[in-house]
Design a binder for these strands. Structure first.
Lengths: 327, 327
DNA sequence: TGCGCATTCCAAAGCGCTTTGATTAAAACC
DNA sequence: GGTTTTAATCAAAGCGCTTTGGAATGCGCA
């Protein structure tokens, strides 16, 4: 039976056709669990969503990432399985996933420096790929990352080239590796141009609208205030814009903003004439690519690890402009 | 063995303890597939994400909904499984889910009028609950919905009470049931107050920032322009605000906005002093409640269907104000 | 016509669990 | 002390599939 449907060579074409016909007539699909049991795999990919503080914050890029990954999974006959877990139970979640044979592999999101998940998965023997990188990891792994450092150095340099000298950074949580790299890029540009870093104008937290607003508000109250902002997320950038406009500052004229843009589908702000000057990289495409990398690893475990660094695209919009005289 | 771990009465407490100890010592977890095969269920809930046009648009509420649902699932030992599928293959996706026994039930998102999925699932015998309602459905089903009609009637009435007479509606795709209900609420308020509806000031589309911006821009170019907007999503509302401010209109003074707010975790805009006047309802809590309803249905199929209508909370923020003289 | 080989098909074992039914051991009764 | 009842344990069957190995069929060759 299974040989017929799965096209083994030993069965004659005639019977194969006959079996296929019969299967279709009864709209038969093999039972996924039985198939998995017999074959020792689940055709399922795991995504563990860990939340802090009993889950206040949901990552906005999640939906787009999943949409991209889902497309690839579907094309290869894989399902995706989500596990929501409190941060402190994360280890246990991966162990359980492996022990129960629930998934064939996992994608790791938002890695930290020396992320403990990587050695754990390595030890468990559960195939994985990482969205981003984990500095100081003791194990080798496959990853796909955006060149965050260069992106933020470019973004900052753009503002410096426009004459800005007092720059602020509204960053994501710097315990996360990507945010740390972004800060390094920002600092490198500042240093390269002989400017000085003002710690009061650097903030790091969840990339919400509220964080952008609160941080920018506090910075704009200082004297002297920053004239330009480098922001880690378009959602935070909306908050920064709100803070600026609340003070009567026109974005692009009185205050400049350059932001990282994940190209989220529901937040394509000004597609024709870009509103935000941005370094952008589609998180959706990253999801699709990482899914492919993971499937490759699962189906061919002996292949060498893959590492891919994507450059961002720099788009000049109307949110950045030359420093006005006298500021 | 299984009786011991699962705490059947017939096994003595002493041996039970012994077995449990041994299991923990070897960090044993039963194989999920084998367990599922033997018991004829998967302890898995399906969510089918259907995308149009090869998946441009991802629903921004998706992440928060999942976070809420995931919490409930985890508490009951269920996993969640996502299937991404092109809109025209949706039927096939549900059939396959059922045939392969991949999930024990599904949650239906964004129902349309006379949604074809409901009779299909009913016929397949796959337990389901609906987030929202489907007007004109031929089958009974469990649902949880927000009172969209009343919410939008209240929102509109609020603006009318402030003196506004030229009102605009920026709605979601009205093929979706909730958007149609929202329009009915809007229209009811207009009619109740003896005002007239202007079709040019009613727009319906994906709830993106871009849609809000484009629609509001077009409406504001008209003469006379609307003085107040009722918006279906805080993301679109951000676009409306951009359109207004681009024209030098101050939101809350020259132009009023009332929006529906799903309380998305990364878009809590102005938690302390609310920025947008809004009718709000947490999509995350809806996810948690619907997950519970579905689990109840699965574990107790004979229970009567559950129907829950949630009222929204009306929050006055600074985006709405009295009509200025002479406009 | 009869033998051997290649081809096709089918029956049986096994994946790791749950559950039923049989077996043994212990306790309770006359 | 012998027998019945009850409690605890163990062995076997079955969930729906894949895969292995043996049986049956068909072919060419002598």
């Amino acid at each position: 039976m299974s040989r017929a449907l799965n096209g083994y060579p030993e069965v004659s074409e005639a019977t194969r056709q006959r079996v296929v016909k019969a299967a279709e007539a009864h709209s038969y699909s093999p039972n996924a669990r039985a198939q998995g049991l017999a074959m020792g795999r689940s055709r399922c990919i795991g995504h563990v969503i860990s939340v802090r503080d009993s889950g206040e914050m949901v990552n906005p890029i999640f939906g787009d990432f999943m949409a991209g990954a889902g497309e690839t999974y579907a094309a290869h006959g894989y399902e995706m399985m989500l596990t929501r877990v409190d941060e402190q139970d994360e280890d246990e979640a991966y162990r359980s996933l492996k022990a129960r044979g629930a998934v064939d592999g996992v994608i790791i999101h938002a890695p930290r420096q020396r992320d403990a998940r990587l050695p754990l998965l390595d030890q468990l023997g559960l195939p994985f790929v990482v969205h981003g990188r984990a500095s100081g990891s003791t194990v080798d792994y496959s990853w796909l990352d955006v060149n965050n450092r260069r992106a933020f150095e470019m973004a900052t340099q753009h503002l410096i080239d426009l004459g800005h000298k007092r720059l602020a950074l509204i960053n994501g949580d710097e315990a996360l590796d990507f945010a740390m790299r972004r800060r390094m890029g920002f600092e490198a540009a500042i240093a390269n141009n002989g400017l000085t870093l003002d710690p009061a104008c650097m903030s790091s937290n969840d990339m919400t609208e509220g964080h952008g607003y609160a941080s920018a508000s506090a910075m704009l109250e200082r004297n002297p205030a920053p004239t330009a902002f480098v922001v880690s997320s378009i959602i935070s950038a909306l908050g920064v814009r709100r803070a600026a406009e609340e003070r009567g500052l026109r974005v692009g004229a009185d205050t400049s903003i350059v932001t990282f843009d994940d190209c989220l589908s529901y937040l394509r702000i000004g597609v024709d004439t870009p509103v935000f000057t941005a370094v952008q990289s589609s998180v959706r495409e990253a999801g699709a690519a990482l899914a492919q990398m993971l499937i490759d690893r699962i189906q061919n475990p002996d292949m060498p690890l893959a590492q891919r660094l994507w450059e961002t695209e720099f788009v000049v919009g109307s949110s950045s402009g030359p420093l006005k005289d006298g500021t």
